[in-house]
């Protein structure tokens, strides 16, 4: 038995099983969005409203850097007007959803793991079990709902701010100086709704997974306070690996 647990492959499948079990148990409380809306709204506030400023700032600079790099190459090819499509497509399909998911893993996922791990280590989760209150009902499902509701909004805001950042840089940087009309027209010519929808689907999958990974890591923490820090690290690292790994397959499926 010990040999089995020390086997990394067995460990991997054990973790996958834990996540699926947590998801299954949590889905049994999917009704909390109707029965306990304040809990979902509170998580939406933490996950969405508080993350919005940092998502906006980072999205702006990602759009800006994209425009800068694209402008450098495209100016040499004398096709500067394509900056709009370059920034538009890359941010909508890839960078905005992945960046939002990374931010969610670093900012929200880590906080969720720290909170639940602390509750586990200090027996608060046991106290919930004793009171016949399921942790999935009051701790996991409201957070999953918040991710389901918010991720499409967060990703669309990130996409729009990326585009805006690109437009501003394209207009004001000396060696580019592309008028906003050309930038936005080119972006409109190349971007279709499916591109934005694909990005939103990615963000939705990533956000849901980040919250699930964070909750599972928190609820399976054992040991003393030191393990809380270890759990937070594992949660963020596992989320990022999941995002990058899954991104490849979703991108391939969306082509």
């Amino acid at each position: 038995m010990n040999l089995l647990l020390n086997n990394p492959i067995a460990n991997f499948f054990d973790k996958v099983g834990q996540h699926l079990l947590l998801l299954w148990n949590s889905l049994g409380y999917a009704h909390v969005i109707f029965t306990q809306p304040p809990r979902v709204i509170e998580q939406c506030y933490i996950m969405g409203y508080r993350s919005l400023p940092i998502i906006s700032i980072l999205s702006f600079f990602i759009g800006a850097v994209l425009a800068l790099q694209a402008g450098f190459v495209l100016s040499q090819l004398s096709v500067l007007e394509y900056i709009g499509s370059f920034v538009g497509l890359s941010s909508a399909r890839e960078l905005a959803p992945v960046m939002v998911a990374f931010l969610l893993a670093g900012r929200v996922g880590s906080a969720i793991t720290a909170e639940l791990a602390s509750m586990k280590v200090y027996s608060e989760i046991d106290a919930l079990h004793i009171m016949n209150v399921s942790p999935e009902k009051i701790l996991v499902m409201p957070r999953l709902w918040a991710a389901i509701v918010l991720m499409p909004f967060l990703s669309i805001i990130a996409i729009l701010v990326c585009w805006l950042g690109g437009a501003i840089i394209a207009e004001f940087i000396g060696f580019i100086q592309l008028s906003p009309q050309i930038y936005w027209r080119n972006l409109q010519d190349f971007i279709v709704w499916k591109d934005v929808a694909d990005g939103m689907v990615k963000a939705w999958v990533f956000g849901f997974a980040v919250v699930l990974i964070a909750c599972n890591q928190g609820l399976t923490t054992t040991g003393g306070p030191r393990e809380i820090g270890n759990s937070v690290t594992k949660s963020v690292v596992n989320s990022m690996i999941f995002i990058l790994f899954t991104n490849f397959f979703i991108t391939r499926a969306q082509m």
């Binding site: 027996s123 106290a127 004793i130």
Partner: peptide, 28 residues
């Protein structure tokens, strides 16, 4: 319906004493 008084209390640290006590009847 059984209950356990934990060694370190296991009180919900994010809630006030009042809300800790009201938690069970509110949840059920």
């Amino acid at each position: 319906n059984s209950t356990l008084v934990f060694q370190a209390g296991a009180l919900f640290n994010s809630l006030t004493v009042f809300d800790n006590l009201a938690f069970f009847p509110r949840e059920h």
